[in-house]
Design a protein around this nucleic acid. Sequence first.
DNA 1: CACGATACGGAACACGGTTCCGTTTAGCAA
DNA 2: TTGCTAAACGGAACCGTGTTCCGTATCGTG
Lengths: 189, 189
Amino acid sequence: MTETKKRADARRNQQALLDAAAAAFVASGVDVPVRDIAARAGVGVGTIYRHFPTRADLIVAVYRHQVEACAEAGPALLERSATPHAALAAWIDLFVDFLITKHGLAEALQSDDAAFQTLHAYFLDRLVPVCAHLLEAAAGEIVSDVDAFQLMRGVGNLCIGAGDPRYDARRLVALLVTGLRTRESGGGA
Amino acid sequence: MTETKKRADARRNQQALLDAAAAAFVASGVDVPVRDIAARAGVGVGTIYRHFPTRADLIVAVYRHQVEACAEAGPALLERSATPHAALAAWIDLFVDFLITKHGLAEALQSDDAAFQTLHAYFLDRLVPVCAHLLEAAAGEIVSDVDAFQLMRGVGNLCIGAGDPRYDARRLVALLVTGLRTRESGGGA
DNA sequence: CACGATACGGAACACGGTTCCGTTTAGCAA
DNA sequence: TTGCTAAACGGAACCGTGTTCCGTATCGTG
C-alpha cells in the first residue's frame, strides 16, 4: 500500500537512511552533519535530499512511531488514572521521557530556523490536541489561563539541556505541572 | 582607570563595536552575523576578534550593565518585599523581563556551543549566587529540592521563544514559581 | 621626523547545508 | 537476452558564516 510505486533501490536507500539517521542521532544528536548520515547509510548527500527535502522531514520520519505512541497514550491514561490531573501529569512524563532521551531534539523543536518548521508543525499537530483533551478533562482542578500550546511549549523548553547532570528537567516540569493545579483541589507539594 | 593604556584608535573602535553590536542585536538578535556588526561599526572583522575573542565576550560586554543591575536588585528586593517568596518572584520577573527583550539571548544562554561557554559562565557566576540567597531566605515557604542553578536554568529555558504571541513566557515562569511554594504557606494560585 | 610597536582590514580558510547535473541502474518490453 | 528510458544516484561545486593570518597603515614617542 505504502510507497509500492517506487523503485526497489529507492525504497532500500530510504530505509537505510532511516536506520543510519536513527543511529547518527543517538551518537551525535539530531543536528549531526548531513554528510555523516549519508556516509553511515553508504549513499551520497543528494540521496538524502531526494528522500527527505528538509532535515525536519528526516527527524519526523525517524521519530514518528514514538510520537504516535505518545499521542495515543493520552486517552488511555485518562481512563486508567485516578484523576484527570494525574493523567495529565503522567502523559507529560511520557513526553518528557521521550524528549530527554533524544539529544538535541528539544533544542531543534524550539528553533526558529525555517528548516525546522515542519518538525515544529508535526509535533504540534499531533500532540497539542491530545494535551488539550487532557487539559479539558482536568479543567476543574487546574488554572484556566494556560492552553495546550503554551503548556507543550513550556515543557519542551524545560527539556532543553537535559543531559547536564546538574539540571533535572523532569523535576522542573513536575514543578510546572504542580503550579498548574489550583489550591482548592487538595494534594500536597 | 579602565583601559587607559591602549592606543586611542583602539579605544575608539572598541566603543564603536559595542555601540554597533548593541544596535545589531536589537535589529537582528544576538546571533547576527559578525560581518554585519563589523560593517555597522565601520571596521574589519579582524578588529572584532581582536577586541572580543569570542562572540560571548561581545555579548557579555554589551549586557554587562543590565546583568549587574539585575544582580544588585536581589538584596534590595529582599528588604522591600512582604515575604522572601515575593522577593524571589519579583527578582525572577526582573530577569525574565531582561531576557525576553533580548532577541535570541535566552537561546544563546542554553546553547551547548563552546563559543557561548563564557556567556553561560558569566550569567551563572553573577546571578546564581543572588538567586541562591533569595532561595535561602525563602527556605521556609518553598520546596527544598531545587537549587539556584536549576531554577535559573529552568527560567532561562522558559524564556526561549518569547516573541511568539501565542506563548507567554512570563506566565509559565510564574506557574513554575508558584509550583515552588509549599502548600502549607498560604496564598492562592 | 623617523621608527618601532600597536592595531587594522580583509583575503583566505574551514565547515556545514544545499543544489545541480553527468552517470548509473532498475524495470520493462521486444 | 538485450536495448531502452525514466528513475535514482553520487558527489563536486556553491553559498553563507565563523575564524585566522599577515601585509599594511597608524599612533605616539624620542
